[in-house]
Design a binder for these strands. Structure first.
Lengths: 248, 248
DNA sequence: ACCTGAACACCGTTCAAGT
DNA sequence: ACCTGAACACCGTTCAAGT
């Protein structure tokens, strides 16, 4: 058994090797915390094996005892940077999932470098999976099957991701990022989009539109999409309930 | 005016500088196509300024005449790699948006390196905006306002992205990627997730679950989430219609 | 005006050597 | 057993020089 990849074993504290001799002076958590601190301060561009090593006071190559590669370090960071999911309290599934999605979006906005992590793997770390756990738990009282619950979780976190990306893309640059920061997205589009090639878009853009950063950051747009999704979930639950009722 | 960022000007063929003297031997499209071809063949890791330069037969520094930085090149690639959106035909808005979302997901799966592009900017390139145009056009006959139409587009492309990421994460590795490829995601989770810390998740995982790659790749799960979203849009439209009817 | 060669300041990673 | 110094094969980017 135990065919789980090495990063995963390490994230879950399953040290692969037995140990004799001197205790390690370092551990993965310390390294991860240092890398996260750098990313918070300087963006992902500031995170290099050597900058992390300097911060924990060690030679760069020492890190390779704890992490197979930089790519693995990034994966570990992407889990370590997550906060705990919101507490369930006595919210309905719907109120809870709304809070959950909002909290998900919030931590992405608080650490925009999470949005620029080069590869998105399926949820594998303890933190990320605790967020998944919460969705399953919130839906435990509903007639949805396991696959459906997973789908709800995927869809909601996807929505949080998209929403965060949209906002982060128009906000202040990361420290270290310089390429594109449309302070006025709508005006930018208006300048470039030609009416005969993009009729609907250019009409929308010219009639003033949701291009102002303020509008997008407003909560209304976020709630709009979220309600759309939750309405869908509610409708599905209602369907399942009536099916179950009719079947017995 | 013209406060659009340089990458954007270049993507739209607005050459910033006047030109006297020798004609350039290269253009941005050629460079972009070469970079995309490398990414298709070797993954994003294979794309370096020098590998692209070699492919177009030029010194690496020549590229900086056409592109401000590697980051800009990646942005240009992310637009250039998109196919044309599906034709509207005489589909209903709903059928069209379903096809649109599916096509969106499909090109992401066909070029998984798009999923690992380091930073997601708001839609700015001609191709990406033509996808947006199509959503606005499909919803033109509905009473949704501009902001709502944008939101629908954002939500649907977010869903395509999430769905593609989930599938790509469990499929064959990119050429060049080696870190994590859970051939059996469910079994992996089962091995690591403890019942008392993750009760709902470990129950789900142990009762056999949507962890098999086949299940996820199945169309059913994708359609599930998509219908959920489109049901929400339909409900909103119905609400707006009845409001408009009552208001006059 | 366009292109380039040499050079700069970095990368991530290996490996054999130290303790 | 853990840590490291030296070394390798790269990066992206600058700048002054060629034509």
């Amino acid at each position: 058994m135990s065919q789980i990849p090495p990063v995963m074993a390490r994230m879950w504290g399953r040290e692969p090797a037995p140990r004799r001799g001197p205790r390690p002076r370092l551990d993965l958590e310390t390294i991860t915390a240092a890398a996260i601190a750098i990313a918070d301060a300087e963006g992902l561009a500031g995170v290099s094996m050597s900058s992390v090593a300097v911060r924990v006071g060690v030679a760069p190559m020492t890190l390779y005892r704890y992490v197979g590669s930089k790519e693995e370090l990034l994966i570990v960071m992407s889990d370590g940077a997550l906060p705990a999911p919101p507490a369930r309290g006595d919210l309905t599934w719907r109120a809870y999932l709304a809070a959950w999605t909002r909290a998900n979006r919030e931590f992405l906005l608080g650490r925009p470098w999470l949005l620029s992590l080069p590869y998105l793997t399926p949820p594998m770390g303890p933190r990320r999976l605790s967020w998944l756990e919460c969705v399953l738990d919130a839906l435990a009282g509903t007639p949805l099957d396991t696959g459906e619950k997973f789908n709800v979780a995927t869809t909601l976190s996807g929505y949080a991701l998209t929403s965060a990306t949209t906002i982060a893309g128009m906000q202040e640059p990361d420290p270290g990022d310089t390429v594109v920061h449309p302070s006025d997205y709508g005006a930018m589009l208006a300048e470039v989009v030609e009416p005969h090639a993009y009729p609907a878009l250019s009409a929308a853009v010219r009639s003033g539109l949701p291009g102002e950063a303020d509008d997008w950051t407003e909560d209304g747009d976020f709630r709009f999409g979220l309600d759309l999704l939750l309405d869908g979930v509610a409708a599905l639950i209602a369907r399942r309930v009536s099916q179950a009722g009719g079947g017995r």
